[in-house]
Design a binder for these strands. Structure first.
Length: 690
RNA sequence: GGCGAGGUAGCUCAGGUGGUUAGAGCGCAGCACUCAUAAUGCUGAGGUCGUGGGUUCGAGUCCCUCCCUCGCUACCA
């Protein structure tokens, strides 16, 4: 491998259907930004691109639901997210969008090029079509009865009850989820990408890092879970996938016989990286090809784990099939971030939204960057808690880093009126400090190169720790009384360490580094100076000390926790609310029910079930065994002796190997809690309920 | 029950291709210090690396059994 002179960094295009939360940031944008900033600091020719992914059925449907145009939805979130990224210092060279004409043109050209090379297989198939909505239906917008297990709620692509994967045409009584009508079958043509034809070279590329007999990357530098997931896909056998869709919101398929068809997301979103590059190049008067088609350029995709297959299999196939394009040298996908014990969920509002965070913690974007990098899910899922956020801020940012900087500045002002002192020529008695500094700097650099940002950040913090230790060991506040010359050496070194902090933290905490550099009157410092005692110039004046970070109090934290709990409760209420009223019935329908009072005589948990209790119930005239799904609300012990209402003429049903002879009635509230139904004066068993 | 992930110090977690006394941060205890946002530094507690087997000269690190936890899913008639 040569050492490329250019770097292209991409971060997954966020879907313009909602705002950005800490999971997105920790998963892709923060590591990408750290890496991009690191490369720029090293002076490498770096381009960092991203943009909004604005097409797809979900946006169309949402627009329809809200009575808006798709473009309105997309405009709203594009602007919101663009601003959130800016506020958090995500230093995209361009944040483009896929609704831009340049993108449509680029994606269409790409499609045409592939089509001319005969990469696709054109095939006509019958597909379900919703006549009322006048559109073909994606698999997941069709439900029906599963042909295998007769579950009435199966989706067009799979039945979640029995787990079998399906074709929409297999469903019994298919229904469109758009209109609720029965869809009709209609012929339509699509362009398929036969991925199975690419298995051989893909396998070699992923496992050996070799493509076209050339070493392209070192697989050892790739994360284990990334390679693992790719292998399991390839080993499971790749299949042909349609690259076109019958929709009207998207990039039009640029062929005469393809009206009302758009490119599928695989040929749309990732091409967004290319069109973003083109848009940037146009503006900057540069050549976009230098970043995509030159062997001098390394490309790295930053994504979350849900995007691995996309970026490691499908996009590479497309790029290679097109020819001329580079493949990524790494795809450092992160796993998922959880929040206070639960996974983040946009729909359930279980998230910390970037724009809301800044409203509550103004100008504290670096604190969140610090915490999210410290706990980034680089090798496995990890957890964000507000308590941890507070601890890391207070004990690490304030106590270690901010405090050290403050000590060095305050001492310099106190003893030398803010002038960086002149140290003696021979500082060899401090060699061990210099060695440690160099070591941390080197470690930090190596970890950054290896995409290990958590570890790299720990090394940066170690530099601040070193500074604190140095001051504690040398005690300049004592020495000043006896040996001012030595205090000059000590503060000279301390200030150099502070300057080192400014450099080392710059990729992670750009705003704080800027502040610190201002305090030190340091115009610029590149990455190469890291580890040296030559960043600051003796004789220069530094500014008066200001705190880089502020403590976060308990009240602020409990407020956030309360906020989370409140939104959680609210969304749960909204989800449940009141069930819709069922269809009206006649008295005859009701009188078919035979409801009786019964007394629970014995109760036990059903083995290997976590919901079912097995109850023996005395109905007066006979005894019944009934299974009831209440184990999460009642223990077996407390059920014994309870009076219940039983549906006594319900057909028996076997569950978990036991026959249930009836059903116990329960009330369920909006929280999903269950409660028994009783008579006021405990009538005798067998009494009729009507 | 099925699928996925995981069980390492009080807590949160590191521990590529097996190899000397198993690590970090926080918390805790003691000591030092007072320049600093009661901040910092040093020292310590002494963890059967979930269980039981196996492979090996040698296993948190590989194989098998079992137990437990979490997520999705099934069982709520």
């Amino acid at each position: 491998m040569n050492s490329p002179s250019k770097k292209l960094i991409t971060a997954a295009l966020p879907y313009a259907n909602g705002p950005i939360h800490i999971g997105h940031l920790a998963g892709a944008y923060l590591p990408a930004d750290i890496y991009a900033r690191y490369l720029r600091l090293k002076g490498e020719d770096t381009l960092f691109v991203c943009g909004s992914d604005e097409h797809g059925a979900a946006i169309t449907l949402r627009a329809k639901k809200e009575g808006k145009k798709p473009q309105e939805i997309v405009d709203q979130y594009h602007e919101l997210n663009k601003k959130a990224f800016e506020d958090f210092g995500i230093s995209f060279d361009i944040f483009h969008r896929t609704s831009d004409p340049l993108h449509h043109e680029t994606a269409q050209d790409f499609f045409l090029a592939l089509n001319e090379k005969g990469v696709f297989e054109k095939e006509e198939k019958e597909q379900f079509y919703d006549e009322e909505f006048q559109q073909f239906l994606a698999d997941r917008y069709i439900t029906g009865t599963c042909p295998k297990c007769h579950n009435p709620g199966a989706y067009g692509d799979q039945c979640e009850k029995c787990g079998s994967s399906l074709n929409p045409q297999e469903l019994i009584d298919p229904v469109s989820t758009l209109s609720g009508n029965k869809p009709i079958l209609k012929k339509t043509t699509h362009w398929f990408l036969p991925m199975q034809e690419h298995e051989t070279w893909l396998k070699e590329w992923i496992e050996e890092g070799v493509v076209d007999s050339k070493k392209q990357h070192d697989p050892k530098s790739w994360r284990k879970h990334v390679i693992g997931q790719c292998k399991s896909w390839i080993d499971g056998g790749l299949q042909a996938r349609a690259m076109t869709r019958d929709l009207d919101w998207g990039v039009k398929v640029p062929l005469k016989d393809a009206s009302n068809k758009v490119l599928y997301v695989w040929l749309d979103a990732p091409i967004g990286y290319i069109s973003a590059t083109k848009a940037w190049a146009k503006k900057e008067n540069k050549d976009w090809k230098a970043y995509w088609q030159s062997s001098e350029t390394d490309m790295v995709h930053f994504i979350g784990k849900d995007n691995i297959v996309f970026h490691c299999i499908i996009f590479p196939i497309i790029l290679k099939a097109h020819g001329n394009y580079n493949l990524p040298v790494n795809v450092p996908a992160n796993e998922f971030l959880n929040l206070e014990g639960q996974k983040l969920s946009t729909s359930r509002n279980w998230a910390v939204w970037l724009h809301e965070y800044l409203a509550d913690f103004p100008e504290k974007q670096d604190v969140l960057r610090y915490v999210l990098c410290s706990i980034a899910p680089e090798t496995k899922d990890s957890e964000f808690t507000w308590e941890d956020f507070q601890t890391r801020n207070n004990s690490e940012l304030v106590g270690i880093y901010g405090n050290f900087v403050n000590r060095a500045l305050v001492l310099t002002h106190k003893y030398f009126d803010g002038e960086i002192p002149q140290a003696k020529a021979d500082l060899s008695e401090y060699q061990s400090i210099v060695d440690s500094l160099k070591q941390y700097a080197q470690n930090c650099n190596q970890y950054l190169q290896a995409y290990r940002f958590r570890d790299a950040l720990v090394e940066a913090m170690a530099i601040a720790r070193l500074g604190n230790k140095f001051l504690a060991d040398t005690e300049p506040w004592k020495l000043i009384k006896t040996d001012e010359a030595k205090v000059k050496d000590i503060l000279f070194i301390s200030l150099q360490i502070a300057a080192n902090c400014a450099v080392a933290f710059e990729p992670f905490l750009p705003d704080s580094s800027k502040k610190l550099k201002n305090l030190l009157n340091l115009k610029s410092a590149n990455w190469e100076s890291l580890g040296s005692l030559e960043i600051l110039q003796s004789g220069n004046i530094i500014n008066k000390a200001e705190h880089l970070f502020q403590k976060i109090e308990d009240e602020q934290i409990s407020l956030q926790v309360q906020k989370l709990k409140a939104t959680e409760k609210q969304t749960r209420m909204e989800e449940k609310k009141y069930l819709p009223l069922k269809e009206m019935i006649q008295f005859d329908d009701f009188s078919k029910l035979d409801l009786r009072l019964g007394t629970v005589t014995t109760a036990e948990a059903v083995k290997k079930s976590n919901k079912l209790l097995q109850l023996d119930i005395d109905l007066g005239f006979e005894k019944r065994t009934i299974l009831s799904g209440i184990a999460k609300h009642y223990t077996a012990e407390e059920m014994v002796g309870k009076q219940v209402v039983v549906v006594a003429n319900l057909a028996p049903r076997k569950m978990m190997g036991v026959e249930s002879q009836g059903m116990v009635l329960m009330a369920e509230n909006s929280e999903g809690e269950l409660n028994l139904i009783n008579t006021e004066d405990s009538f005798e068993p067998g009494s009729n309920v009507s």
